[in-house]
Design a protein around this nucleic acid. Structure first.
Length: 745
DNA sequence: GAGCACTGC
């Protein structure tokens, strides 16, 4: 080694210059001047290697970021406080720079700790980590890494700056309730108020009291900072300090309509065509609420734009209209990055690109070159009704914050315009300031189990940023108690602790853990994975009949759940072939995801020594799968009332119908469902024929008939119970009566 | 005879 002239040279250099770049750095007492000197140093302070030319080039650009100018102010605040709230608008560079500043001050590598920065989305965690590794002149996955589900790009003992999804940090907290590995935790995009961010905020506030050495930074883009400041204040009257950085975007001029628009889709189409005729070149982004609306609008825009071009080719250029929503295959999503069409003739008017998108373009996807935004002011939002335990999507007015975010999409490359299809008066007076946080809008059974596993005992009095409705918490506790994840005092049970380790809804976790008792854990594992990914059925508008025929061939007559198992098994037998998927009108992407989820769940099962077994008798196996479903989903059963395909959910007495996508070839008396969806009517989706006696036998606590409301369901169950009790030796699980087997179509 | 805002583990 000593013969290496390069090393010798470096050694000499080191001796002659200021030697160690971090010399004199006192953890958490570091000054801006010191950091700037270290950044300009010849050697990388963390790898000791000389900085590359690329590093210097990037550094020069970083120095121009707004946040860079305020490094001294930030470092002083970081030294003096345990918790900081930071507001940085788009383009401030907060996500890439602040974690680096923190690293230089905190020096986590000297104490075997890490700095974490959370993101609500996986792509963001990955791409920001990659960028920061470049900026710090290190290899991604070494000093700087990321951690997301299915991919841990970090090196234990080496990585000291880690970007991760908020959900991933929450998972870690379940087995390390003080998050001891971290010296500083940065929650980015806190204004988005994802479920995981909200839970983490509550958790971190609590941990901060126990761990004086832990520093916390809450980063947010909008002006709801005061709420966070107050929440994280040390006492009732004090607030956490605010660090504020201006953004760097172009101005966006906002226009409102004079009168409210009765039909926002029609108004949006009209506005797009108006822009196309009258405004300077530049692409348009239109926000609508869902797939159908978007596809429909795209067709109409295309038709009308073609008309305009035909009428007046000298003044109207060509226009392409591109739909954008999450269920679109990635290849088609990529089309939004295609350049606008060129002019028809060299001297003709230039072309224009229009992207018609859901909210996905508000946060998740950024399209450069957008100059005009058309904002009708609506989006689909999840709402939860705890009374009937149903989550549904409702087209609702957006918040002011959301409208601001949408407008900002027009100013990324140059000054832009935003056309709001509502009045200024409505904007000022009718729109909420912020979008309702997710924790107030959804079923919390998963979250409640997580909180209990995290050691929070009193869920009602837990210090939430926004407390969920007590009824929502009660519903969650009730479900968890029926599933035996909680005892009657509300304490988490041993079973509940294992359930919480699975990245699944409690019903699925319970079913999976219990499945070895029914000797079908291989099958339940597959079904659980299939239920954890988006819809696997592909039904192109131009091949509906073919798709339905293909689905019929894959269907198992008495269970949609078994159909999912069948699809996965055939996919497996065809060696995970995407072509097989394509030919059978199932989504190869969803199947590949299911495969991934299945592997992850299997590893968790192995960790808890949950056996993977299958009965060899196929008929018995399938029956046992249907019984195992009852172990998790006994609260999601409907009973047929009358002959018209009308069902009533047990106990809740909601009128429901089998969803049209249901593959059952009859209308069984008892149906277990995976999902209750409220669209044009209440439907139950992904259904399995089950038997009344199984309910009484396998879920006797819930099917305690004294707790049942009067009605046909109760009377039927009473008859079954009577028959059962009349028999010597109790329940028979033997063959079904022949009459029930008769199918009608 | 209909859907699928968007994320995340």
């Amino acid at each position: 080694m000593a013969d290496n002239p390069y090393l010798a040279h470096r050694k000499d250099k080191k001796a002659s210059s200021s030697s160690e770049p971090l010399l004199g750095f006192l953890p958490r007492k570091v000054k801006g001047e010191q950091v700037r000197k270290a950044l300009d140093h010849e050697n990388n302070p963390f790898t000791k290697k000389p900085h590359t030319a690329q590093y210097r080039k990037i550094l020069e650009a970083r120095k121009k970021l707004p946040v860079f100018m305020q490094m001294d102010e930030f470092l002083t605040m970081f030294s003096d406080n345990q918790i900081i709230v930071m507001v940085g608008e788009t383009g401030s560079g907060k996500t890439t720079q602040i974690p680096q500043f923190v690293t230089f001050s905190d020096l986590p590598h000297t104490k075997g700790k890490l700095v974490a920065c959370t993101q609500p989305r996986r792509v963001a965690a990955m791409s920001v980590a990659r960028r920061v590794a470049e900026e710090m002149d290190v290899e991604l996955g070494r000093e700087v890494g990321y951690s997301i589900r299915f991919e841990d790009m970090t090196e234990p003992g080496k990585t000291f700056l880690k970007y991760m999804t908020d959900g991933m940090l929450l998972r870690e907290a379940m087995n390390d309730p003080n998050l001891e590995r971290y010296s500083t935790i940065i929650l980015d995009e806190a204004h988005e108020r994802t479920l995981a961010t909200d839970v983490l905020m509550g958790l971190l506030k609590d941990i901060a009291k126990r761990r004086a050495d832990l520093k916390i930074i809450i980063m947010s883009a909008t002006l709801d900072a005061l709420k966070f400041q107050k929440y994280f204040g040390l006492t009732q009257d004090s607030a956490a300090p605010l660090f504020k950085v201006p953004g760097r975007t172009h101005p966006v001029e906002v226009f409102y309509t004079q009168e409210p628009e009765p039909d926002y889709v029609e108004a949006a189409i009209r506005t797009v065509l108006m822009i196309h005729r009258a405004e300077d070149p530049g692409d348009i982004l239109v926000f609508l609420t869902g797939e159908e609306e978007i596809e429909d609008a795209c067709k109409k825009i295309k038709l009308e734009a073609d008309d305009l071009v035909n009428q007046d080719p000298d003044s109207v250029g060509p226009l392409v209209c591109i739909p954008l929503y999450s269920s679109l295959p990635p290849q088609q999503q990529q089309r939004i990055f295609d350049p606008a069409p060129s002019a028809i003739s060299p001297s003709g008017p230039p072309g224009r690109k229009v992207v018609v998108s859901t909210n996905i373009a508000e946060t998740s996807l950024t399209i450069d070159g957008i100059v005009y935004v058309v904002d009708p002011g609506f989006s689909k939002q999840k709402v939860y009704n705890p009374r009937i335990r149903v989550e549904s999507l409702l087209v609702s007015p957006i918040s002011k914050a959301s409208a601001q975010q949408r407008a900002g999409r027009a100013g990324r490359t140059r000054p832009g315009k935003c056309f709001r299809l509502y009045t200024e008066k409505d904007f000022m007076g009718e729109l909420e300031e912020q979008t309702y946080p997710e924790i107030l809008r959804c079923n919390l059974s998963n979250t409640v189990l997580e909180l209990l596993k995290l050691g929070i005992k009193d869920l009602v009095r837990f210090d939430y940023v926004d407390a969920p409705a007590p009824e929502t918490l009660m519903r969650a506790l009730e479900l968890l108690n029926y599933l035996a994840a909680l005892d009657d005092e509300g304490n988490i049970t041993a079973l509940g602790r294992i359930m919480a380790e699975f990245p699944l809804d409690p019903q699925l976790a319970k079913m999976l853990i219990a499945s070895p008792e029914f000797k079908c854990s291989n099958e339940i594992l597959t079904i659980t994975a299939m239920l954890s990914v988006p819809n696997i059925w592909v039904r192109p508008a131009n091949a509906r009949r073919e798709a339905d025929e293909a689905k019929a061939l894959l269907s198992v007559p008495d269970s949609d759940h078994l159909t999912l198992l069948n699809v996965y098994n055939q996919y497996y037998q065809n060696k995970y072939d995407k072509n097989w998927a394509w030919q059978n009108y199932v989504s190869g992407r969803a199947l590949a995801q299911a495969e991934n989820v299945r592997d992850q769940l299997q590893r968790t099962m192995e960790r808890f020594e949950i056996e993977l077994v299958s009965l060899s008798d196929e008929k018995k196996l399938y029956q046992n799968v249907r019984k195992a479903l009852v172990i998790g989903f006994f609260m999601q059963v409907a009973h047929k009332e009358g002959e018209k395909g009308s069902y009533l959910t047990v106990k809740d007495n909601q009128n429901v119908a089998l969803h049209p996508s249901c593959g059952l070839d009859s209308q069984p008396e008892w149906v277990l469902f995976n999902e209750f969806v409220l669209t044009k009517r209440p439907y139950i989706r992904t259904n399995t024929d089950v038997r009344g006696e199984w309910l009484l036998e396998l879920a006797s606590q819930y099917y305690d008939l004294s707790s049942f409301p009067d009605g046909e369901t109760k009377r039927t169950l009473q008859r079954i119970a009577k028959k059962r009790d009349g028999k010597a030796g109790g329940v028979s699980n033997g063959g079904e009566p022949a009459s029930k087997k008769q199918r009608k179509k």
